[in-house]
Design a protein around this nucleic acid. Structure first.
Lengths: 354, 354
DNA sequence: CTGTTAGCGCCTTCAA
DNA sequence: TTGAAGGCGCTAACAG
């Protein structure tokens, strides 16, 4: 604000030039039907001549809106590359959707450990009127208190890929459970009867769902459970490698290993290859995410594709809808994943088959 | 704004409760020194009691600022995964820097092809006062007209990883040229005399710089130039694979291949392995980006690390600095990259050595 | 269909 | 150190 080098054109300048009142100009700009053609033309003329662009802050203050949407991302620290790969398509899809609207996209990130900070942040945003709606992207459970703050406020919000039990609505999710069921069925049909699991963080929502699908599938298919075949790694290649090595040290070997994400699957494959075994000859491996890693792996990886774009589009669409209809509730929605079969899975060796 | 279910506390409510004027409350909130201790305590009390949080839009309108920073990303369409991997660390670093400040981060993206849209967008942002500063992230050249609009406006801005010739300042860059020089020197020292290049888009700024470093290095080191050894791919694994296959079909073979990014390097490695050759035994390969791909490749890939965090930090730091000192110019800055030596490079076979 | 005017909630100058 | 009051630029009732 120091140095008023460039005078900013205001509504009243346009009104003066067009020789009408500010009210008429305002109505014209807001597409109010009651502006005569004659005046509309004069105003449009003046606007173009002056290069007038409305001051958003003034407009928003008067209207009581902010025209801002917030994407609030909660993530682990340090942030994993697999998380990036998950987030960016979502960010992009959301922006793509917003672009033709009048909304701006605001981005904020916090670390899951900082529960206090998250609560403070939400509270601040709920009260300072700086956004009209909020999408929360998190793969870990969010504090009930935070959700409650949100619910009590009138701010429309959506949990994206994040589940909460204290709320029946406002969640757009994808179906980890059925995805892993499908993977297990597929392995079973190939002839596998000994299936291990290298999963991710034990407290991460998606991983919890995947683990429970794995366990339920074993029962459903009448397969042996073996505690030593269930591992938790840290979502990285190295972590997957380490876990697979532990499994390879066991006396009783599985014939297939289901992994919680592609990174860990790559690590598992590495461990297997390092010991001179082959994939899928000796071990079948599956991942999750259908990331670029799964495509460049050798052999390329059977995995599960998450409908990230559809998730993002659904979320933002519903959010805007509920902003326009404040009384509307956003029903919970669960989108399906798709299994992508590639070369890392095959029939087990004959001696292992039933 | 429909349904005033929850009354929003305002400055005047605090003033009433604290039994002072709104002016005094405002001064207290803005940390103006001239507020008596007694009143300060009363006000603080009232604020806490009411849970008052200032309305940002009103404050900003009064102050003539927006408290918003814009990160404007221009990218190719469709967006490549290698671009994602490049952008997200930057986004994160920028947000990390902004978090403790009062600024909010706004995000916008456009496709490079839409030149008109980009110009319109910039113009809109420059005039609607919705942001106080802007970082433009693009790997492709930006229209002079767009830059000029920005220069003429009083809006502080920075080009991040993007060079323009019509401006001597406002650019935070990284040194592609020296990085490739270093790679070439390294290969030369290993004994390589026949070095090919699989580069990316011929019109992308970084790739242009890498190509020119490659050519200059050949001269500098007194090596043969061979047109057939210089290829342009589309930044993907498949593209790199295709180009490498073309090279492998040639009569005269290089002993090393420098690639414009890790993806293409992985593709090249794939082509080589598919023909039964070994890496680095028969061919040495280098990439660029130090992405996760380079670490999971087999063998893992010699590559170049771009200081993304430092770039982002420098950019946002300088931007905020120049927002506080409107007369300040942000000098151009070029950060160094680091070569990361791994196992995809080695001495060439004896028969090829000089 | 249009002009007038009172806000939107806060900041900041001016006098006291 | 404080209170009063006039903006910031735009919107939306209201009266005409």
């Amino acid at each position: 604000m120091i140095g008023i080098s460039k005078y900013n054109i205001k509504l009243r300048d346009v009104a003066k030039l067009a020789d009408v009142s500010v009210g008429t100009v305002s109505r014209y700009i807001n597409k109010h039907p009651s502006v005569s053609k004659k005046n509309a033309a004069k105003i449009q003329n003046a606007i173009e001549q002056l290069g007038y662009i409305p001051n958003l802050m003034a407009r928003n203050l008067a209207k009581g809106v902010s025209n801002n949407l917030l994407l609030y991302i909660l993530q682990e620290k340090p942030i994993l590359e697999s998380t990036w790969l998950y987030e960016l398509p979502i960010i992009q899809s959301i922006y793509e959707y917003i672009r033709p609207t009048n909304y701006s996209l605001q981005l904020a990130m916090d670390y899951l450990e900082d529960k206090l900070e998250i609560g403070r942040f939400i509270n601040e945003y709920v009260n300072s009127k700086r956004v009209d709606g909020m999408i929360i992207l998190s793969t870990f459970e969010i504090d009930d208190a935070t959700i409650l703050t949100l619910m009590k406020s009138e701010l429309p919000f959506i949990l994206l890929g994040n589940q909460t039990n204290i709320l029946a609505a406002n969640q757009i999710l994808f179906d980890n459970y059925h995805a892993i069921n499908e993977v297990m069925d597929y392995l079973y049909q190939l002839g596998h009867r000994r299936i291990a699991l290298i999963n991710g963080f034990a407290h991460q929502q998606h991983m919890i769902q995947r683990a429970s699908a794995y366990c339920d599938s074993l029962k459903r298919l009448g397969l042996d459970t073996c505690d030593e075949w269930v591992k938790n790694a840290n979502h990285t290649v190295d972590g997957g490698c380490k876990c697979m090595n532990e499994i390879l040290d066991l006396k009783k070997q599985p014939t297939a290993v289901v992994c919680g994400n592609d990174d860990m699957a790559i690590g598992a494959m590495k461990a297997i290859k390092d010991r001179g075994f082959s994939i899928p000859g000796d071990y079948s491996i599956t991942g999750f995410d259908d990331s670029i890693l799964s495509r460049i792996a050798e052999p390329d990886l059977t995995t599960v594709k998450i409908p990230l774009e559809a998730l993002a589009n659904t979320a933002i669409e519903k959010l805007i809808e509920s902003m326009n209809h404040p009384d509307m509730t956003i029903p919970k929605k669960v989108l399906a994943c798709t299994m992508v079969v590639r070369s890392s899975t095959g029939r087990p060796k004959p001696e292992y088959e039933l």
